[in-house]
Structure formats: C-alpha cells, structure tokens
C-alpha cells in the first residue's frame, strides 16, 4: 500500500507547508522540493518496470528502439519540467516556471527532429 504512504506523507507535507509558508516561506519551498524528490525516487523502480515492458513490446513490433527511446526521453523531460515549474509556481515565481516550460518545449522539439526528418523522407519517397 505505497499509495497510502505517499498520500499520508503528502498530507503531512501540506500541513507543514501551510504552517511554514506563513512563518518561514523559504523553508516551505525546501519542504516542497524534498517531497517532490522523495516521490520521484519512490516511483523510480516502477517507472523502470513500465519502460521495460514497453521496450519488450516495441521489440515484438519491430519498432526502432531509437525512436522509442526518444519518446521516453521526451516524456521524462516533460515530467521533470513539470516538477520544476510547479515548485516555481508554488513559490510564486510564475515567470521562472514559464521559462522552464519554454526550455522543455524546445528540448522536446529538438529530440523530435529525427522523427520529423524520417517522416519527411518517407513522404518524399512516396511521392513519385
């Protein structure tokens, strides 16, 4: 029942966060960061298991592992950027959160370039 542990920890962190935010705002942010890191670490094993299943499926479907890895990387970047942006939003720095999301979008687009090139190449070949 890991979910109970996480929810419990989340509720306790929220209570402390509210208390700390009124008295010592800087510690509240640190608490929020620590909780995010903890959840991420706790979920790491499970994420690995999911990725393993996807890799097996992709091998069965003869999918290029390079592209699947790119998709995984993109999802990972989205998650990390979301973590960072949410913490920034909690701290009240909306503009920094926006910049993090902007950087994540650009990185995702860069990672998607090989897929776009492959699609274009296919279309060019299809057209006689």
């Amino acid at each position: 029942m890991e979910i109970l542990q996480i929810v419990g920890l989340g509720l306790i962190s929220t209570v402390f966060y509210i208390i700390l935010k009124e008295r010592k705002g800087e510690f509240a942010i640190q608490l929020s960061l620590a909780f995010a890191a903890l959840v991420f670490i706790l979920m790491m094993d499970k994420i690995q298991a999911i990725l393993q299943v996807f890799e097996d499926l992709a091998l069965k479907a003869n999918i290029n592992m390079f592209y699947l890895t790119t998709i995984f990387k993109i999802i990972g970047i989205a998650y990390i950027a979301e973590f960072g942006a949410q913490i920034c939003r909690d701290a009240g720095t909306e503009s920094i959160a926006g910049k993090i999301e902007f950087a994540a979008k650009i990185i995702i687009m860069v990672l998607a370039i090989p897929i776009i090139v492959a699609i274009l190449e296919t279309i060019v070949r299809l057209i006689p």
Binding site: Y67, I71, A78, I115
Partner: peptide, 19 residues
C-alpha cells in the same frame, strides 16, 4: 504528465506511430 506540454508530446507520438 497533465500539463500544456501534453499537446506537444502527443504530436511527436503521432509522428512516431505514422512512421
């Protein structure tokens, strides 16, 4: 993830499926 990046990722995944 549930954020505004979901749209972007879905496009990339669509391209991947197409390919």
């Amino acid at each position: 993830p549930n954020n505004n990046m979901q749209r972007l990722i879905k496009v990339v995944m669509g391209l991947f499926v197409l390919l």
